[in-house]
Simulated scan of single mutants.
Amino acid sequence: MLQFIFTKTERYPGLEVEHNQFQRNVQTLIVNFKYRGFWRTILGVLAIICAKVGLPVLEEYRFFKQNRRESGLDTDGIVELDELDIPDGMRSSASRYEAASDFEFRHVLEKLHIDYPAYNFIDYGSGKGAIHAAAARYPFKSVSGVELSGEMHQIALRNIETVKQQDRVRAASLTSVHGDATSYALPPCPHVIYVFNAFGADVLQAVLDGISADLADVREPIYFLYNNPMHHKLLDMNPDYTKLWNAFGGKWMVFAKMK
């Protein structure tokens, strides 16, 4: 039992970082109780169990269906790399779209205990906009996403309009940009940066180089929230970054860049 608890594995080799899945599942359950509430979480767990044993009941309480029904956003699912409309020359450094958990994100973000109005938030490889829609719940100076796929970007724009109509935006501005993460310029102010394994090591290194250049004069900490950190060694070996903690069994890593 102890060997299982402390063993790092990945369910999807090549697509998911090795992490302690037992620890992740426990923390995910706790976070669901925190944001979803007791009964909706219990129903969601029962729905998963029913699906695994082949019982056609409680299907509407599956977590992803709860999310879509309650948020009104089109953010769930997986879009494989060959289905994404991105330039052929960039495919070798791109990753598939996979929905991220806004509850995991909110838990990690809130642990920073930052002054939100002093910070910009940027999501590199923002897909359908689930995470920067979640970030807009907080009073950031601005919330932006950068997405290479035109189709994903258009979905993100629709989702942004939805959260605005629902009056759930506390950030001073909320935008999605269709473009290349390596050429996106950041204004020289404090940032919280989020990446969900959106690209390969070569593009991540170019993004890190751009961050260093654009934010060279910023004296406040720059936070880097890395979800599914397949290429975390680039930050581990970078003397400008300090790892603050792991979350969800190592499925998330949080770094800070100090002046």
Results as ranks from 00 to 15, higher is better:
5 I>S: 11
82 D>I: 04
139 P>Q: 05
33 F>K: 05
101 S>R: 05
115 D>M: 07
243 K>S: 02
140 F>G: 02
246 N>A: 14
144 S>K: 04
140 F>H: 10
52 K>I: 01
106 R>C: 15
45 V>P: 01
203 V>T: 13
119 Y>W: 09
5 I>C: 12
133 A>I: 08
195 V>C: 13
213 A>L: 11
146 V>F: 03
249 G>Y: 11
246 N>E: 15
135 A>R: 06
76 D>V: 01
204 L>C: 07
90 M>C: 11
23 Q>F: 12
77 G>P: 00
87 P>F: 12
25 N>C: 13
105 F>R: 00
166 Q>D: 07
9 T>G: 05
43 L>D: 03
21 Q>C: 00
55 L>F: 02
1 M>Y: 01
15 L>F: 14
222 I>E: 03
183 S>E: 15
38 F>Y: 14
39 W>P: 00
98 E>N: 11
145 G>L: 06
62 R>F: 00
110 E>H: 09
171 A>D: 00
90 M>P: 11
72 G>K: 05
156 A>R: 06
235 L>N: 05
55 L>N: 03
226 Y>G: 06
29 L>P: 05
44 G>E: 04
256 A>Y: 00
234 L>K: 09
248 F>K: 01
205 Q>S: 13
204 L>K: 03
254 V>G: 01
174 L>V: 11
42 I>K: 03
232 H>S: 15
80 E>F: 13
250 G>D: 11
69 R>T: 10
32 N>E: 08
27 Q>I: 06
223 Y>D: 00
171 A>Q: 01
70 E>A: 09
148 L>R: 05
146 V>M: 01
258 M>T: 14
220 E>F: 04
50 C>G: 09
115 D>K: 14
258 M>C: 03
207 V>M: 12
154 Q>M: 13
170 R>G: 05
159 N>M: 08
228 N>Q: 03
187 P>A: 14
206 A>S: 15
79 V>P: 02
63 F>A: 09
65 K>Y: 10
182 T>D: 04
185 A>T: 14
43 L>A: 08
156 A>E: 00
39 W>A: 02
167 D>P: 03
104 E>H: 09
253 M>Q: 12
207 V>N: 01
244 L>K: 09
92 S>G: 06
207 V>D: 05
139 P>C: 06
54 G>R: 00
228 N>M: 11
84 L>P: 08
61 Y>C: 01
13 P>G: 07
21 Q>Y: 01
111 K>Q: 15
159 N>K: 03
167 D>N: 12
216 A>D: 14
213 A>W: 00
131 I>S: 03
194 Y>T: 08
86 I>S: 04
134 A>T: 15
188 P>G: 10
218 V>K: 05
93 S>D: 12
156 A>P: 04
34 K>Y: 07
95 S>V: 12
37 G>P: 02
84 L>N: 02
162 T>A: 09
6 F>C: 01
140 F>M: 03
15 L>K: 09
90 M>H: 11
113 H>P: 04
